[in-house]
């Protein structure tokens, strides 16, 4: 890749008085070039992020200009009629992510506690492998399983729950429907997909709890549960918030699995067992046959999604870094 610094001095490099040694003087140019290369690669990150925003917003302009603020506030998405309001998709993204978090967060925290506090040594490694494997399965395979196996199975359960809760005011509305492809199906699949990341960050957070505090709690006669509740959880609260937010960012951006199992119906409805649609999913499903303003509107959805995930991630990083700093201070 990069040539090792040459020992023959290039003619244009004049030895500077006060150079520290003969070898340093000889490789100064190579040294600087290497540094420049590294810096350029680092700057590439900023360039790419900037370019993403500029070039996608640029392509989305026709749709933004035509719809204005209605792009975010209208729920009419009618490619044939030329109306593009993304509200239903934003709603879908939020609902599906919320369902995923409600399921994934308790399980992930349980897994993290299991690995860092409770697991017998010989069970720890298999569980870490289990989480690695969950993370390694590609999104599209989750989707394939969801659409062909899980959806048809869970729909039977939906039907039963739906009739059980029928007539109860709020619950009867939310727990309603029997569609194989629905908000709920997408939310459950997403929950499985974000469990690895929430678990691994929660684990990191739990690992920062000082050992003497845990031992002090146990030494005072606390049970494991009391030790976790009294020493581990209060200490890691901020970090856990960060873990949840990173999970949220992942859930909002997850595309393919959701595209396969959400049902592609641009509707704002409270019924969790009925089909809906989400931002990333609609882009994946419609982009192929979209032209003109429709295509611009889909790119616009990408812009909105990009901004939403960037904000969520920035806030999450800030929360966790503040937690880090506090923990670093607390460690003495």
């Amino acid at each position: 890749m990069i040539a090792p610094p040459s020992t023959t001095r290039p003619p244009e490099v004049v030895p500077v008085p006060g150079a520290k040694g003969p070898l340093q003087g000889g490789s100064r140019l190579a040294d600087r070039t290497f540094r420049g290369l590294c810096l350029a690669s680092g700057l590439l990150v900023l360039v790419v992020l900037g370019l993403i925003l500029v070039s996608t917003s640029n392509e989305a302009m026709p749709a933004f200009r035509q719809e204005g603020l209605r792009f975010l506030t209208s729920s009419t998405w009618d490619p044939a009629g030329g109306h593009f309001g993304a509200l239903a998709f934003i709603y879908g993204t939020l609902v599906v992510s919320a369902v995923a978090l409600v399921i994934a967060v308790p399980v992930s925290i349980g897994l993290a506690l299991f690995i860092s506090e409770l697991a017998p040594a010989r069970l720890r490694t298999p569980v870490v492998y289990l989480i690695d494997l969950l993370a390694a399965i590609p999104s599209v395979v989750y989707g394939l399983w969801g659409i062909l196996v899980f959806g048809p199975e869970i729909a039977k359960l939906y039907e039963r729950a739906s009739s059980a809760f029928d007539g109860i005011p709020l619950l009867g509305t939310v727990v309603h429907g029997s569609s194989q492809k629905s908000f709920m199906t997408a939310g459950i699949i997403l929950a499985v997909m974000i469990t690895p990341i929430v678990t691994s960050i929660s684990r990191e957070v739990f690992n920062t709890v000082p050992r003497d505090q845990k031992e002090a709690a146990l030494g005072l006669g606390a049970t494991r549960f009391e030790m976790i509740r009294g020493a581990v959880l209060p200490y890691s609260r901020t970090g856990l918030v960060g873990a949840v937010m990173l999970g949220l960012g992942r859930a909002m951006g997850e595309t393919i699995a959701v595209a396969l199992v959400i049902g592609s119906a641009p509707a704002i409805r409270a019924q969790l067992f009925e089909p809906g649609d989400a931002m990333a999913a609609v882009v994946a499903n419609q982009f192929g046959e979209a032209t003109g303003t429709h295509r611009a509107a889909l790119i616009g959805l990408g812009v909105v999604l990009f901004l939403m995930t960037v904000i969520v991630n920035l806030v999450a990083r800030r929360v966790t870094s503040r937690a880090d700093r506090r923990l670093a201070g607390g460690k003495r």
């Binding site: 790419v48 640029n58 994946a284 790119i299 990408g302 960037v310």
Partner: peptide, 22 residues
């Protein structure tokens, strides 16, 4: 750069697709 690279990890993959498309 470090923060932005972390943020870039969170950019949805579909947005990367749209980006390269444009």
């Amino acid at each position: 750069i470090r923060t932005m690279s972390d943020v870039m990890t969170g950019v949805p993959s579909i947005v990367m697709g749209l980006f390269i498309y444009t």
